[in-house]
């Protein structure tokens, strides 16, 4: 992030996410382990507002690259709500090496937590190392297809985020949600059309995945494509076990 002292950091519409305004604008999150970058991303340090006794301190942010993170791309794509907010508990399926997980951990902060599930061992090692310096990340090296295997490690969560790039992704999300997602919680799914069905048109694949979610007691809320950051990708957000609208105001 060039621009030196000129950089000003403003809160984003989504709580816990920030925008750094410099020569170019960049999405960023508050670094919960200051001084350390997780995957070589840029760090931005700005003066904090002076405290009551007049001492100044620095606050550090990490730049969040939408080309590397589908969640960041969805935010820049103008998604209405990511349902990942300070204090939230998130089940993250397909954590990979933990690059996006580290930003999610920054957003939920010390009062929230992220259960990061990854099956492959090689990125899993990086994930565990990242989690060492972030105590709100609980690394789980296990197959997301078998949520019962890690049932002892996971509590009830507010949001399930999935980026597993598997043909049966909707089923995997539903399976996990039945055990761990609270009523009225949300799932945020990143869908790569070619991973589900490489012959159908992307729009048809997205519609098909949404209809699968509907049969599993999800109510689709919104869908954004990740252009220009990813091709033929969409993020779908759905509400799980929506509360019935019975009493008018209560």
């Amino acid at each position: 992030m060039k621009g030196g002292a000129k950089v000003v950091v403003e809160p984003h519409r989504h709580e816990g996410v920030f925008i750094a305004r410099g020569k170019e604008d960049a999405l960023c999150t508050l670094n919960s382990s200051p001084g350390k970058a997780v995957y070589g991303e840029k760090l931005i340090s700005v003066e904090a507002p002076p405290s009551e006794d007049g001492t100044t301190s620095k606050i550090e942010y990490r730049v969040w690259n939408p080309f590397r993170s589908k969640l960041a791309a969805a935010i820049l794509g103008g998604v209405d709500g990511i349902h990942i907010v300070p204090g939230a508990k998130v089940l993250y399926l397909g954590a990979a090496a933990g690059t996006t997980v580290s930003h999610v951990a920054d957003i939920v902060g010390p009062s929230g937590c992220v259960y990061a599930v990854e099956f492959a061992h090689r990125p899993g090692r990086d994930l565990i190392n990242m989690a060492k310096s972030r105590t709100n990340v609980i690394p789980i090296i296990e197959d997301a297809r078998h949520p019962l295997k890690y049932r002892m490690l996971v509590g009830m969560v507010d949001t399930v985020f999935a980026d597993v790039a598997q043909p049966d992704q909707a089923r995997i999300v539903a399976l996990n949600s039945h055990y761990f997602l609270k009523n009225g919680g949300h799932c945020v799914i990143s869908i790569k059309a070619s991973c589900v069905d490489s012959t159908a048109s992307p729009e048809a694949v997205f519609a098909q995945e949404v209809s699968k979610l509907k049969t599993e007691n999800f109510k689709p809320k919104e869908q954004v494509t990740l252009e220009p950051y990813e091709r033929d990708h969409a993020v779908v957000i759905a509400l799980y076990r929506p509360p019935k609208k019975s009493k008018s105001k209560d």
Partner: peptide
């Protein structure tokens, strides 16, 4: 409760990763 999950998650996952002697992905 979360502290217990954190500690157990780390030891469970570390054991999984270490147990693969080939150090390659499954």
């Amino acid at each position: 409760g979360e502290k217990a999950q954190l500690g157990l998650g780390h030891s469970y996952s570390r054991a999984k990763v270490k147990m693969n002697p080939a150090r390659s992905d499954n």
